[in-house]
């Protein structure tokens, strides 16, 4: 029982990070129909920049805030320089552009910060908390709390604010949104900023547990992408459920079956889900129009 609980704890922690990455995918996808494979690099930047800031003598909290803002700015730049000029390009060209951006960011980070693995102190120390025979790191609680706050905040943003509704309207029908006077370019910029910022936050929170280096982004992007597809691309609820499910599946497979094949279980289940639900768990069903 305590063993199961232990696996659940680690699954939810990792799952919360996947959910945040998947949410980043979802926000950008909704605004622009682009799947941004550089999403993982935002997570990496969050961790690396926080480390760099605190190494330069800044208080950790300030370093984290700067890291998140800088990453959000990076997201905006990426949209302006790489995505907007390629509007209307086929899916596979967009995939290559975002992968190019991801390689570029990774290369740049390596150039500036080197190849070392970095970490920085947890927010509330590293003494594990004991719950019913299992333990959980205080930092895990911060990760989970961060994810919960982001999801609640976004939900309020999308349902309660005019700007949030404008974003939703744009994702439903870009042209119609333009016609009613929504600045869709601004919505795209905002989406990239938001999604880069959320990615960076995930990186800030998880790095004390997993550590970080210039090359952690790709694996996270693939997991986040898979989680987003599992939940159904374009649906924030899908991102949350997909991310948590993926994290739990990995933790349970690693715990009970084989840690080497934890990624395999995740992808086998994704294939199975897509087999029965080609649009993912909560995806929109599209009707062909002729």
């Amino acid at each position: 029982m305590s063993e199961l609980l232990q696996f659940l704890f680690s699954g939810v922690t990792v799952g919360a990070v996947y959910a945040l990455v998947a949410l980043g995918f979802t926000i950008i996808y909704n605004a622009s129909d682009v799947v941004n494979f550089a999403q993982g690099e935002f997570v990496m930047l969050g961790g690396m920049l926080t480390f760099a800031g605190s190494a330069a003598g800044l208080p950790l909290l300030l370093a984290a805030v700067i890291a998140i803002l800088a990453t959000a700015a990076m997201g905006v730049l990426m949209n302006k320089l790489a995505i907007e000029p390629a509007r209307g390009a086929p899916v596979v060209s967009l995939i290559i552009i975002t992968i190019g951006a991801s390689i570029f960011i990774r290369g740049g980070t390596q150039l500036i910060f080197g190849k070392q693995i970095h970490t920085y102190p947890s927010i509330s120390g590293d003494t594990p908390i004991r719950i019913m025979g299992a333990t959980i790191l205080p930092q895990s609680l911060w990760v989970i709390l961060g994810a919960v706050l982001v999801f609640i905040g976004l939900w309020l943003f999308f349902t309660r604010t005019l700007l949030g509704r404008a974003v939703l309207a744009t994702s439903n029908n870009r042209l119609a949104a333009q016609l009613v006077g929504i600045n869709t370019n601004f919505v795209m910029t905002l989406s990239f900023a938001l999604s880069a910022g959320i990615g960076a936050l995930a990186g800030v929170l998880i790095s004390p547990i997993t550590m970080t280096s210039y090359d952690v982004g790709l694996a996270l992007a693939l997991k986040g992408f898979a989680a987003a597809m599992l939940g159904g691309m374009g649906n924030p609820k899908g991102a949350l459920v997909g991310g948590l499910l993926l994290g739990l599946m990995e933790a349970l497979t690693a715990g009970y079956l084989s840690s080497q094949y934890k990624d395999a279980a995740a992808f086998i289940i994704i294939l199975a889900v897509l087999f029965f639900l080609p649009q993912g768990l909560f995806g929109r069903k599209s009707t062909e129009r002729v």
């Binding site: 552009i97 992968i99 190019g100 951006a101 570029f104 960011i105 290369g107 150039l111």
Partner: peptide, 18 residues
């Protein structure tokens, strides 16, 4: 600079020569 340039080339070609 290898990675940096590779990523840049991928983006530039796809943006300007789709």
């Amino acid at each position: 600079y290898e990675q940096l340039i590779l990523g840049l080339v991928m983006m530039l070609v796809m943006i300007f020569l789709p």
